[in-house]
Simulated assay, not measured.
Amino acid sequence: MSEMRLSHVIAGFVAVLVGYAGSVAIIYQATLAAGATPAQASSWMLALGLGCGISSIYLSLRHRVPMLTAWSTPGAALLVVALPGVPLEQAIGAFVGCGVLLLLTGLTGWFEKLNDWIPDALANAMLAGVLFRFGVEAFGSLQVDMVYAGTMIAVYVLARSFAARFAVPLLLIYGLGFAVMTGAFDLSAWQGAGIAMPVFIMPEFNVSVLISVGIPLYLVTMSSQNMAGVAVLRGAGYRAHVSSALNVTGFLTTVLAPFGGFAFNLAAITAAICANEEAGEDPKTRYWAPVFSGLMYILLGIFGAAVIGLFLAAPKVFVAVLAGLALLPTIAASLSASLASPAHREAALITFLTTVSGISFFGIAAPVWGLLFGALAYGLTTLRR
């Protein structure tokens, strides 16, 4: 305990603030896509807060490494696209399937082989296709409310130029402040606000839903979250303890999925906040930062009903712009990585466009078809070469 410093507390708090500000709007949209009631949506936030908090505290204290975990934000974006029309019980079954796959990946040590099975270009192209609609909706909101959406975009651009780390939190504060001052909040939506209670939903396993939701959720979580999280830790000079992290996050995903915990993974952007010099001068004590983040996650999870109530009361333009702008760096990075190799650029583009198209055949959603079509083009190109 004598190792704790104020810098650890501040870094842990900022990491959670950035994580919530950048993804709660997307999770809220995912609960709507799943057809969840306000009570069930609050249970999602409770499960996600508890999962992130428990895993961050356990992994960091066990390994004495700043191992911050998070829910899969790209996974939540995928759910917004893939869940409409899917019964909630079957969606929960897909979450459990994703958790089992994550756990098996950790137990068997398959993580290191994942890049050999899924080309980076295609995984990034699929992710970019899933997230693309959020960026479009953010700027499409200009048609709905030019002043509100336009000023939010301006605040984000200015913040990214002068205080990039705090761009999303500043955007959140401005957007909420604008809505309050203009009376745009629908206060009647706060009826369900309060302490969140767990709501258990019995999983129902459907093969087509497992294929179109569970497997893409697993792939997105592994390719865009866990791989980036490992890179952040290694770049900061720490051992990532990959198998341990996958075992813990996979187990918690499986256990908390019936309550709405759709996927947990190593954090990337927020993990960097806890692993850099600003989190503490001594690298050996920085693991206290994600411990404080874990405590914050648990506290905010308990008050998940209030968090959901906030987004129920907020204008739709606010939610759309916040979600889209928060994902802009991820969209840019995914597009850049998918098109980086000239040899596989066409296959990646096929994956991207198929995913954006939103097609669905035999109950299988567009992201899976995008991977299949892209893999076919990738294989033929490789064979020709």
Rank of each mutant, 00 (worst) to 15 (best):
A268G: 11
P66I: 05
N124G: 10
T151H: 00
R133I: 12
W369G: 11
R239S: 15
V248R: 06
P66T: 03
A189S: 13
S7T: 13
L376P: 01
V291R: 03
S7M: 05
L6I: 14
G22N: 08
L131Q: 02
L170E: 00
Y297F: 15
G324S: 09
R160T: 14
N276A: 12
G237Y: 09
D282R: 07
A231H: 02
T270F: 05
G19E: 09
L107Y: 04
H63V: 01
L79W: 04
A125R: 03
V14Q: 13
W71T: 04
Y297A: 09
P66G: 04
N124C: 08
W71K: 01
L210C: 15
I302A: 14
N226Q: 05
F200W: 15
A76K: 04
A121C: 10
G140A: 03
R286Q: 03
Y218L: 08
A94M: 07
V136E: 11
F373C: 15
D145V: 06
L103H: 07
A272E: 12
W117Y: 14
A257Q: 04
F185Q: 03
Y287V: 09
V230T: 06
G379C: 11
M152Y: 10
H344Q: 12
I195N: 02
M197I: 14
A149C: 07
I57N: 02
E277N: 09
E281R: 13
F362I: 01
A305K: 00
L312H: 14
L46P: 10
A189V: 02
G250R: 05
A375W: 14
A41K: 05
M146H: 12
G51A: 13
D116C: 00
R234I: 00
I201T: 15
T69A: 06
G175E: 12
T355I: 10
L187H: 00
P329E: 08
V147G: 04
G85D: 07
L172H: 00
I57W: 04
V317T: 15
G177Y: 10
A348N: 01
P283M: 07
I201F: 11
V9T: 04
P74H: 03
A271D: 06
L17Y: 01
S334D: 07
V248E: 02
S56G: 06
L295D: 03
A236H: 13
P329K: 05
I302Q: 12
R133T: 11
S72P: 04
A326N: 03
A313E: 03
F251I: 15
A323Q: 03
I54M: 12
L322A: 11
A228T: 01
Q191M: 12
A164Y: 01
P367D: 10
Y156C: 09
G49R: 03
G363A: 05
A167W: 08
P38Y: 11
A21S: 15
I302Y: 09
H241C: 10
P169R: 01
S293R: 06
I92M: 12
T285Y: 02
R160E: 14
A263G: 06
